Lab assay of single mutants.
Amino acid sequence: HNGKLCKLKGIAPLQLGKCNITGWLLGNPECDSLLPARSWSYIVETPNSENGACYPGDLIDYEELREQLSSVSSLERFEIFPKESSWPNHTFNGVTVSCSHRGKSSFYRNLLWLTKKGDSYPKLTNSYVNNKGKEVLVLWGVHHPSSSDEQQSLYSNGNAYVSVASSNYNRRFTPEIAARPKVRDQHGRMNYYWTLLEPGDTIIFEATGNLIAPWYAFALSRGFESGIITSNASMHECNTKCQTPQGAINSNLPFQNIHPVTIGECPKYVRSTKLRMVTGLRNIPSIQYRGLFGAIAGFIEGGWTGMIDGWYGYHHQNEQGSGYAADQKSTQNAINGITNKVNSVIEKMNTQFTAVGKEFNNLEKRMENLNKKVDDGFLDIWTYNAELLVLLENERTLDFHDLNVKNLYEKVKSQLKNNAKEIGNGCFEFYHKCDNECMESVRNGTYDYPKYSEESKLNREKIDGVKLESMGVYQILAIYSTVASSLVLLVSLGAISFWMCSNGSLQCRICI
């Protein structure tokens, strides 16, 4: 991952900044910058967002509201009850120091605090018919004063009620008058409520006091790749198909172990950190130390980045220098085999997901714990399936590479015959000098055995068991695999060879 928040398929997220979902939807004055928000790819909250409900109280069923919003990608904020005409018999300019803005008392931008007009609070009834052709999110509140005197001074009615009804919602609220500790300079409380109004449905408000009335509502448009994440990451000019709280993932790998919460087309989250597919040879310690064997393909974004291909070729060293050249036929066979294998694994496992966190309130801790156990169970199954699949494929890959290298080895052996000696570690020792032209003939299969047989015969008789390297004779190393990324691999195959001279070296080696 890149540690950044990015656009998702070209669409920017909605960053709530210092506000949370509650503050944004109710219209906390400190969240005025969010009022123009219309569309987004996903919503970003920060872990310690401080601006929620400015007048103390709870947004009821907040967790369910977050779940609903996680599939919303755009909205239209509109005046559901026009301020100047909807409440002619009531005062609608209630403000509070708890919702101060720029040093002055204020109130929510989407709600109206209705109080008595003169000395009376006549029963009010108002309704709205949803003609938007889509779901409408309606929010309101109920004020709970701290004393009967406060109730009387604001609403005149000691036994007030609030009723809200639609086809799918029907509740009646009565204020709970009680002494409470002071929070944000208030002994009173406000509880906030919401409902989704279906197209064509009607919502009716009736009250004799204590109503925090809707002013603006939201017509919602769903987008199934949307979601809500909690993150401290910063926004950058970048684009992605998959976003996590820790950063964007741009990967076609089937798995990731970065974060379980994802938005967009994302690899499946697994616990494993070692889900690797081999593309090189079986481990040979001396070669492995030099980083030549054991190439791997990573299938977990965050564990290993991208696929690494092994390729086969020849390396030689003689009086004229040293050089490398790919054996294109065996390399292409290996590439085709690995590509098919990788595609097979991805096809089997690479279903892209959006995974969002589930919200539970403080009273639902047991449910949250149960949900976590269920999620953990599914996660263990996914991890096991992934590891088992790759384990089985790896064994076949190792066998496949062994065969490829063996074929190259036999190709060289059949040409050199007794003009060189096998020394048991995949290397041959020449009994004759071999210049670049000679080396090329070994690589392309045109090695002239009779041409060098007499010199080889004489050297075999002279050496008589002495280690060949100390006599200045020449080696050919018969097994060799270097490691390159897919891009470098293609470039390498396009070149005939490249040279690395070893000044004054008397050794001649050709490596497979």
Rank of each mutant, 00 (worst) to 15 (best):
T273Q: 12
F360T: 04
N503C: 04
V473G: 10
P245E: 10
V491Y: 14
V412K: 06
T482R: 01
I338N: 05
G472Q: 07
K411Y: 08
Y324L: 06
L477D: 01
A355F: 08
G294W: 05
L493F: 13
S502T: 11
S497V: 07
D327G: 06
V405K: 09
N336D: 11
Y289S: 06
S505R: 04
W304K: 00
N362R: 13
G357N: 07
G291Q: 05
S322V: 11
V342C: 02
M235A: 11
N361H: 12
Q243C: 05
K417Q: 08
N444C: 08
R443W: 04
Y452H: 11
E368N: 08
A355C: 12
I476M: 15
L391I: 10
T446C: 11
L408I: 15
Q332C: 07
I308H: 13
A233Y: 06
N333A: 10
W304R: 10
K348S: 09
M471G: 12
I263C: 09
T331K: 03
E437D: 09
L398T: 05
M367W: 14
P260S: 01
T273I: 12
C434I: 05
S344A: 15
R509Y: 02
I287D: 00
V345L: 12
L506A: 06
E429T: 13
E364G: 07
E301C: 07
L379M: 08
G291S: 06
G313H: 06
I423G: 02
Q317H: 07
L408G: 03
T482P: 04
Q475F: 10
V491E: 01
E469R: 11
V473H: 08
N257W: 06
P260F: 07
R396E: 10
K372Y: 01
G465V: 05
F378P: 05
E454G: 13
T397E: 09
N459G: 11
Q332G: 03
G472W: 00
D464R: 14
F293A: 03
V270A: 01
Y269R: 00
E410C: 02
M235P: 07
N418A: 07
V278P: 03
S492H: 07
V483F: 15
L487C: 06
I476C: 13
